[in-house]
């Protein structure tokens, strides 16, 4: 596949707009795309229903990668952490974790993946056709604020300081 010119920072969100709070990450991306142009010059935005092996190729030639997803396990509206490549045994499913995508990158491309971070937004309802829950609306507004701060300083060390754990 021809390698196209890529922007140094990738925001890769996943979720389904018609499944209640699963829409959180794609909705976050819409908010981000409305930020001032100056913040977005170096940013590429991608959205998908689920993460899969081919997303490893989207990580190529990036300086920083931000994954975002809705999560039922969040204790806080927004949680943020840096990821390491990790073997993922979810081989019976059709969806991968971001750390497993990093592992695919490492194994197939024989290189260390770029620094990757995961932002999770707290969600509680995932019914087909449902809208956002009250909890999810709160996480969405906090996450938008949080990502705006990240994009003001797209520097590895600064992002690491923002990590919740």
């Amino acid at each position: 596949m021809k390698q196209m010119q890529v922007k140094p920072i990738l925001i890769l969100v996943y979720g389904n707009l018609s499944r209640g709070d699963d829409a959180l990450a794609p909705l976050l991306l819409e908010q981000v795309q409305n930020l001032p142009e100056t913040l977005l010059e170096k940013i590429e935005c991608l959205t998908d229903f689920q993460l899969q092996i081919e997303h490893a190729l989207d990580l190529q030639n990036r300086e920083l990668v931000l994954f975002a997803d809705a999560s039922v396990a969040n204790q806080q509206p927004v949680e943020f952490s840096q990821l390491n490549p990790a073997y993922d045994n979810s081989y019976t499913t059709h969806a991968m974790n971001p750390a497993a995508v990093m592992q695919v990158y490492q194994d197939t491309l024989k290189a260390v993946p770029p620094p990757c971070f995961l932002l999770t937004l707290q969600g509680v309802e995932f019914e087909l056709g449902a809208g956002l829950s009250v909890i999810a609306e709160q996480s969405l507004s906090q996450a938008t604020e949080f990502v705006t701060q990240l994009l003001k300083s797209p520097i590895l060390e600064v992002w690491q300081e923002h990590c919740s754990a």
Partner: peptide, 27 residues
Amino acid sequence: DIAKRNIIAVLGEFTEIGLQGVKLRKF
């Protein structure tokens, strides 16, 4: 063992197949 049934193991031990799978999928 369980780890071996993982795609990652395939990718590790059958390098070309793993990469071809990713690239076929991407195509």
